[in-house]
Amino acid sequence: MNDALDVTLRLLIVFVVFLTFPLIIGQTEHKVMAHMQGRLGPMYAGGFHGWAQLVADGVKFAQKEDVVPAGADRRIFQLAPAVALLPYLLVLLAIPIGPSEGAVGEVIDAGIFFVLAVMGVGVLGSLMAGWASANKFSLLGGLRTAAQLLAYELPMLLTAASVAMAAGTVSLPGILDAFEWWWLPWQIVGAIVFFVAGLAELQRPPFDMPVADSEIIFGAYTEYTGLRFALFLLAEYAGIVVLCGLTTVLFLGGWHGPWGADGLGWVWTLLKTAVLAFIVIWLRVTYPRLREDQLQKLSWTLLVPLSLAQIALTGVVKVVIQ
């Protein structure tokens, strides 16, 4: 009975985090992006500086008609948003935010494997949407998504492998237990490659060719309306939470901080995640969209070699310190 209660409570907390954090990041994006462009952003919804803008957006989406195009593959089309969104919920379950047993949804021994494999599934949602919409723009978006997945999954996996090598374990809490501060400079290249590749996998600007709204309407999501469209958007922001959380856990030492590590570990995790989320927004505002071929070039000629070099460096250092 107590076990069941424990599990229910954990799932509930993870679910609440899953529902609120993406909205917080979305609202932050509204405001940060606005101020970076010399605007104010939403100011009315909710009364105080438009804090309820995304709630209002949600209400709007819920009111809209859910249209499925006549030529679409109906079931796949309707299933796609769930496939895009749910993996991030599962990943969130495995991310530890504090050192104790209670600070993680579920301890998974092969954490890195689980997390990266499930994140890859999320991209399938866009592929399904692109194919099932029976729309040329959607298909183009879906194909670009596929190309992007192929190009960026590799450097992401390689850099994650580098951290696993350094820690000697693939469990996420295990990696954090083994973390030392000098891992930061040691794995910095891997961290940057992982973060950039993660951004590309989330199709965030400047890597948003699959949804490039000025070229192919909205890519795979062109035909979506109402709540299903909102779910895709939510998946993007949940993806930011997951990516920033993962980068924090793998490369920035998660709950380790220069001081006050006892009991306040989760504050450090959240703080680092928030800073990374800010960087995600910052990059979006600053850089223009890469062209499709530039995107592939960046991955294959820069990120993959860099991640291989990182693995070599990790291996060498690991052997030397033993």
Binding site: A34, H35, M36, Q37, G38, L40, M43, L283, V285, T286
Partner: peptide, 22 residues
């Protein structure tokens, strides 16, 4: 150049916006 771009957006963010709430 990339760093310069980041600096520009960050500087704009810290400046007060001139939008008038009509």
């Amino acid at each position: 150049g990339l760093a310069k771009g980041l600096a520009v957006t960050l500087r704009t963010m810290t400046k007060k916006s001139v939008t008038a709430q009509y």
